[in-house]
């Protein structure tokens, strides 16, 4: 009289039970925690979500490199990259290993099935990475590189500066100690939005949050210089002069760079103006 029940029937049941749990969870906690309840995947996976998020972030990287994960992807040659209009750091060639066919026939067949040239997604295909960035950021809100990379692509490739700002602001709320997020926000306000007041705020915040060990000297100079530029554009000349001088003082005496010369020029013009 008993009927055998196939395992496949349990899938809808499990899904239904899952959705019911979330529904109840939301109802119970509606008054206590108004924010963050839209993150259903994060709730399903719990702390495993971080690992899944990291995997998805790597998957986005694989997508950019034609679908193959490191170290299986073939090397990117100078010619291939040249055809795409740019050549990346040549050291990348040393890091990527070609999927060499090994001696036995099984490896050779596998190699033939998986063989393809190394290419980077063209501009019209770069959107294919976005679902993985979105999922990676959602599943692991503490993954600062994923937040920065998602914002970078949205801003640079898709002209979605507002979406990039939204991601970075949420990232800053989830990672209040991450100066990189403030620096990225400041760059978008400074270069894309021309909103120098907000740029100044975030450059100052980035410098305040960054401990001395976190920043290379060049990055500290760069942030300080941009803080000075923001102040200058806002007409806060005294504060700008102070910031330019601070940036200038970070250089070694014998070090001569175009940026150092630019800063020297800015200081002179502000001093003359005074």
């Amino acid at each position: 009289m008993t009927r055998r029940v196939s395992a496949i029937y349990f899938l809808p049941l499990v899904l239904a039970a899952g959705f019911l749990c979330f529904f109840l969870d939301q109802k119970i906690n509606a008054s206590a925690a108004p924010a963050g309840f839209e993150n259903i995947p994060g709730r399903i996976l719990g702390s495993a979500g971080e690992a899944v998020g990291d995997t998805l972030f790597l998957k986005a990287d694989a997508y950019f490199h034609g679908g193959e994960t490191f170290p299986n992807r073939p090397p990117e040659t100078k010619e291939e990259l040249g055809r795409e209009g740019f050549v990346e750091d040549e050291r990348e060639n040393e890091k990527t290993l070609p999927a060499q066919p090994a001696g036995d026939w099984i490896s050779r067949v596998n190699h033939e099935v998986r063989r393809h040239g190394h290419y980077h997604l063209t501009k019209d295909k770069q959107k294919e990475m976005l679902p993985f960035f979105a999922a990676a950021v959602k599943l692991d809100p503490r993954n600062v590189p994923a937040i920065l990379t998602a914002a970078f692509w949205l801003d640079k490739s898709f002209d979605r500066s507002d979406a990039a700002i939204e991601i970075l602001k949420q990232g800053a709320r989830d990672n209040p100690e991450a100066w990189e997020i403030d620096a990225a926000l400041a760059d978008i306000y400074f270069y894309r939005k021309k909103d120098y007041a907000r740029g100044e705020f975030h450059y100052a915040d980035a410098l305040r949050k960054a401990k001395s060990g976190d920043l290379t000297r060049f990055r500290r100079i760069d942030l300080t210089y941009h803080l000075a530029e923001s102040l200058n554009f806002e007409g806060k000349r005294a504060l700008a002069l102070e910031a330019y001088r601070e940036a200038f003082s970070l250089y070694d005496v014998e070090n001569q760079t175009p940026l150092k010369e630019t800063i020297r020029g800015k200081i002179q013009s502000l001093v003359v103006g005074e």
Partner: peptide, 23 residues
């Protein structure tokens, strides 16, 4: 099940960018 998941996944929007298909 395949139909429901596919249709749900197909209507997802990512930052309002259209025609994303590989995922």
């Amino acid at each position: 099940l395949i139909g429901v998941i596919l249709f749900y996944a197909a209507q997802l929007q990512f930052y309002n960018v259209k025609n994303i298909v590989r995922y």
